[in-house]
Write a protein that binds this DNA or RNA. Structure first.
Lengths: 368, 368
DNA sequence: CTGTTAGCGCTTTCAA
DNA sequence: TTGAAAGCGCTAACAG
């Protein structure tokens, strides 16, 4: 298979074929006007006939625009990011831009590498999302120093307050969920945070703490565990929370749905019924097919809209338009799916304790 | 916010700063050799100091390689495609390539548009996946005529037998599943196909039919419904299958997991228990968090591997290497998750009929 | 209205 | 070992 790209027809070929200069051809190609109707038509016909397509690399070299942006995310397979990516891509598409997909797996190394590639002017600008804040910011700092246009989504870096971004009000979301849980009568509420190196994890935790304070509930450090936003992390965190054998809580609030589900598995394995024995709440509102159970009461983050929104923000930046406000913040919506039960007195806790010796509901289940 | 890209430092700047020619700098940058050690070191130091990065657009113009490929898929939000995309991206990354994400939603219009963009030499090659075969092939035909390098994954177009591709043996997968279902005692097996305009849907159906023939089971057209690979499509198809009020089947085989789940919902709403009353099987093995129920016995398609594999195939094409074989076919693996129950005599069917008047298990559930 | 010309930033002969 | 020079395919003044 000899598949090397054939020599493409160039603007010069068309010019020669039409007996005009390449400038004229360029003008009709770009609808720049200033070309006689007859000439223009003829040129168009020849272009059509020979299926000429301008070489966009050459165009980019001179216009200094590639019409491409980079999207740097941890992993497209995470439903949250694929949703976000789709929002970005749709916005790009609407503006005749392409979107370069960059998966970092949260690795500073990979992110740095992508930054290197992007600033080679492969992309006109870039969008960066969640990452451990400090470690990788040096790469971003050089970008900023070169005044390379970029925006953040759900990524907050203290050192760069001037970078435009789209955010979600994580603290408000956690606060709202906590108020709801508390309104159902719970006072002993366990919390599984995200990795506290990330800004959003810290904000969610802040919301949790704020709510406790607001209701005069004493913070119990034994009820707080740091997770990693992954399923297995939720499972392990729940394991840790139950270490003392006595479930010191009637409700469990995980910082994202995946961890909530991981915790759900552990709890179920230990014989707890949810929400009868323990209530569970999550964050993200990952969309699964409607029949899928369990359903977790959660906070919805409009990932698609976040993606679309940053992209438009980035375009404003690219156009040299004023970006106001510098930050756009999306507000949370609570999605009640019934996994937080009302608490009648101390009942749930006592029942839970009683079930502790019960057989595992799902003995041989593996973690991913 | 004035964010227009600042003038970047160019090779000429470095040359001047070093007192050498740009050719020398170029040699150093590309490790082309033929440069004195002292000069090279000095140049490297200056490059480092001024943070020079070669403009890749200019490089591309001359080398005629952009180090980017295009990935054209229906929708990243579909877990199958995000998995595939990740495989593609990883392979790209390993070869210092970028991956341009192109979502078409199955629209011929969008696909054509992307083809136009890609052939502008934005990408060195492209990967195309599932789509209605005939309608959009004209765009692909022009690509081929221009000998633009591209490959298929899970997309088969009769008119282009010479395009390299990576495939999944859909017929074998369906056959394997059917044999399994039949081995459990089922003879009345309903089938929900994918859109028959696609090759893989036709192949899966073929596997279904082949298995029936193999076991001397008469084909009942009333047990075959065409779906659309979507959740709602599975729901509606199941509705149609139950139209006569009597479930004329003891097992239901859907051409993908999403439809299987949609059908599951309908069946459950109608009061059937699964798999006690009706068995259900799917295709794709979409990965959900481990606690999630229901589990559907299914055929696994290694989407990630498919993606990785085509990408490597495309790279071979780009290198002018011989692509052999022209087609790579991945084989199915059955994942038993317990949704296909053994059938004892006619029991299941009779029980199912009896339950028909029962109340809906999930009354107010909405479709997406 | 149209053509000439000078690059965009880089790679790559070809000479020295 | 190094440099000069010729482009890659196109756009954008600037003349005519």
């Amino acid at each position: 298979v000899r598949a090397r790209t054939a020599r493409a027809v160039t603007i010069r070929d068309i010019a020669r074929l039409c007996g005009v200069s390449i400038a004229t051809v360029s003008r009709v190609v770009n609808d720049a006007g200033g070309v006689g109707a007859r000439t223009a038509n003829h040129v168009r016909k020849v272009i059509e006939k020979h299926d000429f397509h301008p070489n966009s690399v050459a165009q980019s070299l001179i216009t200094k625009r590639t019409h491409t942006i980079g999207l740097v995310i941890p992993d497209v397979r995470n439903p949250f990011f694929s949703e976000l990516a789709r929002g970005v891509e749709d916005a790009c598409n609407a503006n005749d831009f392409g979107c370069l997909l960059c998966n970092t797996d949260g690795s500073t190394e990979k992110e740095r590498e992508y930054v290197r590639v992007l600033r080679g002017r492969v992309a006109d600008g870039a969008i960066f999302t969640t990452q451990n804040a400090l470690e990788s910011s040096d790469a971003l700092l050089t970008l900023r120093n070169r005044s390379y246009p970029f925006c953040f989504v759900e990524r907050y870096i203290d050192e760069m307050p001037d970078v435009p971004g789209v955010y979600f009000d994580n603290e408000a979301g956690a606060l709202q969920m906590m108020r709801y849980i508390i309104s159902r009568g719970h006072r002993r509420i366990a919390f599984i945070s995200g990795p506290l190196s990330t800004h959003n994890a810290r904000m969610r935790k802040l919301g949790y703490l704020r709510a406790l304070e607001e209701h005069g509930i004493r913070v119990d450090e034994k009820l707080i565990v740091e997770g990693n936003y992954r399923y297995s992390g939720g499972y392990q965190a729940a394991e840790k929370l139950l270490a003392g054998r006595k479930p010191g809580f009637t409700a469990l609030f995980a910082s994202n749905d995946l961890m909530a589900l991981g915790a759900y598995q552990l709890l179920e394995e230990r014989g707890f019924r949810i929400p009868a024995d323990v209530s569970i709440a999550g964050f993200d509102n990952i969309g699964y097919p409607p029949v899928m159970r369990p359903l977790i009461t959660t906070i919805e983050i409009p990932a698609y809209d976040l993606g679309k929104s940053v992209t438009e923000m980035l375009f404003a930046l690219l156009d040299g338009r004023r970006v106001t406000p510098l930050r756009r913040v999306f507000q949370p919506v609570l999605r009640d799916k019934g996994s937080v039960a009302p608490l009648d007195g101390n009942g749930a806790r006592r029942r839970a304790a009683a079930r502790l010796t019960g057989a595992s509901a799902h003995p041989g289940k593996e973690l991913p």
